[in-house]
Amino acid sequence: MRIEFTLNGRRRRVDVEPNQLLLNLLRDELGLTGAKYGCGIGVCGACTVLLDGEPVLSCLILAVEVDGKTVETVEGLGEGGGLDPVQEAFIETGAIQCGFCTPGFIMAAKALLKENPEPTEREIREYLKGNLCRCTGYVNIVKAVKLAAERAKHLT
């Protein structure tokens, strides 16, 4: 089936099979390997991407379902080859160890900060509870989101 959607700001037209998942379209056909396959059943958040601006799990969405919609992945962040402030904050606070969970966390954190620019620690933990990390213990991830929020506040 032919679908057309906006991926990281660019119109894309691709042919997909009905049983093809969005995650596999991104990773296997379009070369965007940021979103990861962790569990495949919705519990780890490693495959998180933004669909029309909201975080969703690309392991449980058919590629055909995004026809006409807008998809953003971690590869679309940052301007002019630079990093997004949320990415910078993750690096600076040591919120990344193996990095497998990181793209999912960053996309979820982007959505959180858009909706709630000054989240409390509780709100951060609640919003990110669908993203699992086996390395960091989450403390530095929470710090990273706080740091990104603070910097955004000083910029405006």
Partner: peptide
């Protein structure tokens, strides 16, 4: 669920 699940 999580915010991702509730979005879907």
């Amino acid at each position: 669920g999580s915010v991702q699940v509730r979005n879907m």
